[in-house]
Design a protein around this nucleic acid. Structure first.
Lengths: 223, 223
DNA sequence: CGTCGATCTGGCACGTTGTGCCAAGAAGTC
DNA sequence: GACTTCTTGGCACAACGTGCCAGATCGACG
């Protein structure tokens, strides 16, 4: 059950992205609706369980039709993916922006810890949703899929930063191991009752995992 | 969609497992049927794709009813899990049996490589099925789930081998990273056209990945 | 051997999932 | 305002996955 996410074809001339500034109004409205649905679904899933929540209920609660719901998310369980994937997205973005002369292992660790440090209320909220949602085994698939997406994007960024002749296997391994480290840190945190900051927090556990890992991975690129 | 696998309740007095020898005849027949379905499903999935294969077709081809199919596998895509999970099962079994005085990182690497080295025709067959099945994105979820299962079982075995005060986070990380390494090796092999032995084979790539990893993971237990 | 209890099986009904199709409305361009 | 492109929701529909029930089958025991 792939997450096709009802990819709109922004290839038409009409909704072309303006050269300057951000995406068009329609695009932003669409993204807002997407997040609306995600929050609605998260609330229902956390309150009454995934199994006991129908796609129609989510749609109705979000003020849209069932058919439209499936245009935003091709799978019911995937409706909460935007909340679960936000951190991972930030991670690869930060890594891509980090200074090129920084040793790769350092860049990886710093960006990971930074992405696990909630920057605003939305990030704190997303972490709490993560903790709630991870209690439902029916979202395991979504959780795995989200990290598979992170892993792939991370692989791309790593490939850019690494010397041209880098072994693809090494890159894949580094991306997979690093993603697994973040996942483990989040799972461990979610299973505990630690707050989002301080000892036992995601950035604490994540930092420990990443250090444990990068101490051995031969990521010799960079400074 | 959790894999409940229609767990039979072998708690009744009737089908109690004999103290000696293997499981009862009924149990073995059940396992055989399970593998039958798995092979049938794999053949259909590989031939015509997961999307285009209905659960009823698998059931019919395997000589059972649709209802019975769902008693063996609660999700259509999960029907091939036994084939994909065989290697991982062997891995944790080998690790659990490996000598206790062997350094953990050595034991991990050796058992991993051994489990990736096809021991019989069935193992070779399973590897070829793996390669075929990994081409269908609709089996990504099953693939991830299989490794999630391996990771959990590996965690259990590692916990037994590690000193009592071992950090749970460290154990989880090691299990996750090692599982990811094997997964990457298999994915890389499946994407190539390398044979099941020699350079580029699963045990070759798996060994490289594990060495890369264990060189850094602080698995200081054992000799 | 035959009885008994537990399990396996298949058929049916049923709610839910997810998609194709189409017409109506809204957004953006000229 | 005319035109194009995209979004929306309603309908129909195949497939999915489960609860339920009656019949067959298995294993134990006397």
């Amino acid at each position: 059950m792939p997450y096709r996410h009802a990819a709109p074809k922004w290839q038409g001339a009409a909704y072309a992205e303006p050269v300057t500034g951000r995406p068009t109004l329609t695009q932003r409205r669409r993204e807002a609706t997407r997040l609306d649905i995600a929050r609605t679904a998260a609330a229902l899933f956390a309150e009454r369980g995934v199994e006991e929540t129908t796609a129609e209920e989510i749609a109705l609660a979000a003020g849209i039709s069932l058919r439209t719901f499936y245009r935003y998310f091709s799978v019911k369980e995937g409706a909460v993916a935007p909340l679960l994937a936000a951190g991972g997205q930030r991670w690869v973005d930060l890594l891509a922006e980090s200074p090129a002369d920084l040793p790769l292992r350092e860049a990886l660790e710093r960006s990971a810890v930074a992405s696990l440090t909630p920057a605003d209320d939305a990030a704190v909220e997303a972490m709490h949703w993560t903790r709630s949602l991870l209690r439902d085994p029916r979202l395991d698939g979504t959780w795995q899929r989200v990290h598979a997406g992170s892993e792939e994007r991370l692989r791309t960024v790593l490939a850019v930063r690494c010397p041209d002749g880098a072994d693809p296997l090494e890159i894949r391994l580094a991306a997979a191991a690093a993603t697994a480290a973040i996942r483990v840190a989040l799972e461990q945190w979610a299973a505990s009752d630690a707050p989002v900051t301080g000892p036992g927090s995601p950035q604490d556990l994540g930092g420990r995992c990443m250090r444990e890992l990068t101490a051995g991975l031969r990521l010799t690129a960079g400074g």
